[in-house]
Design a protein around this nucleic acid. Structure first.
Length: 156
DNA sequence: GCCAACGTTGGC
DNA sequence: GCCAACGTTGGC
């Protein structure tokens, strides 16, 4: 099983939206590196840190799991939608989406500042300067430590 | 293939 | 709102 961090702006789609929807098709990712992680490495059952970006505070808001592996991203084909990409051919889709399932909400958002204060997380990608990937891998040790700080265990 | 211009992300 | 970092585009 692998571990991931996925970013979303809570004004657009936060952990509360996922809690209500239970499962969400994670469309709209338009970065090749992030796409490759979703397409090539994400498997059903993988664990996800749900990260709020552009938020007050930004940080890890809760936990999710992958419940459906990569398939063509339907938002790329909707000319009316914000994520339309005319260069994505339905016969040869450029972008993919995975299904993300709600697991838990942290009692309070585990802020970036709090994460930075923990030396065990010093090497975590999300804390790196200039790091913008919206889907990124997380080590098992970092994932476990973030769950401990967030006061929620990822269910086995 | 280089690289300047431009667009986006996202913390602050 | 600012701006650093970084990805993408397109002229050459």
């Amino acid at each position: 099983m692998k571990y991931w961090l996925m970013k979303s702006e809570p004004d657009e789609y936060g952990i509360e939206h996922l809690r209500k929807d239970r499962i969400e098709m994670w469309g709209g990712v338009r970065n090749y590196q992030a796409r490759n992680f979703m397409r090539d490495e994400m498997k059903v059952g993988d664990a996800v840190l749900f990260y709020h970006s552009n938020a007050d505070p930004s940080g890890v808001a809760g936990l999710a799991r992958i419940s459906g592996e990569a398939e063509p991203d339907p938002t790329a084909f909707d000319p009316q939608g914000d994520y339309f990409d005319p260069k994505s051919d339905p016969e040869n889709p450029r972008w993919v989406a995975v299904k993300v399932e709600y697991v838990a909400t942290f009692p309070s958002v585990l802020s970036l500042a709090a994460l930075r204060e923990n030396p065990k997380l010093a090497e975590m990608l999300v804390l790196r300067k200039g790091q913008r990937l919206s889907v990124q891998p997380v080590s098992a040790a970092h994932f476990k430590e973030v769950c401990r700080m967030g006061k929620v265990d990822f269910p086995r």
